[in-house]
């Protein structure tokens, strides 16, 4: 038991994830903003056949705008609450990386 605790705590102190992992909010925000723009444009240029197929709802337009809004929400969240990188502890291993 205590041996497991020691081993995992030791690995945790060497762990690089918290300090180095990029922020997923940037990825979600970026992808949905791009998708939002693409799909919104498809909605603006929708043909009559497209509209008829989608039960007279301009689904591309609405979905595109919603995705764009979600993307911007994540980007705004990222901007307002950036991750504070944890201070590099003394336990950081010194082996060279990348």
């Amino acid at each position: 038991m205590s041996e497991l605790h020691r081993e995992v705590s030791d690995l945790e102190s060497k762990s690089a994830t918290a300090a180095r992992l990029f922020d997923i909010r940037r990825i979600i925000g970026g992808l949905f903003a791009v998708y939002g723009v693409i799909v919104t444009i498809a909605g603006i240029t929708a043909s009559d056949a497209d509209l008829e197929k989608a039960q007279d709802i301009n689904i591309n337009l609405w979905t595109g705008l919603a995705m764009l809004a979600l993307g911007l929400f994540f980007l705004a969240w990222l901007k307002l609450r950036p991750i504070v990188p944890p201070p590099a502890g003394p336990a950081q291993s010194t082996e060279p990386t990348e």
């Binding site: 995992v8 060497k14 762990s15 690089a16 994830t17 992992l21 291993s93």
Partner: peptide, 27 residues
């Protein structure tokens, strides 16, 4: 493309087996 990009970007964060298997218990 984004899926692969996430994989390569996450690579920098993997230094120990704990990073690789449990994201360093940090998410």
């Amino acid at each position: 493309a984004v899926v692969l990009g996430i994989g390569f970007a996450a690579r920098a964060s993997v230094k120990t087996s704990l990073d690789f298997f449990l994201s360093g218990r940090s998410l």
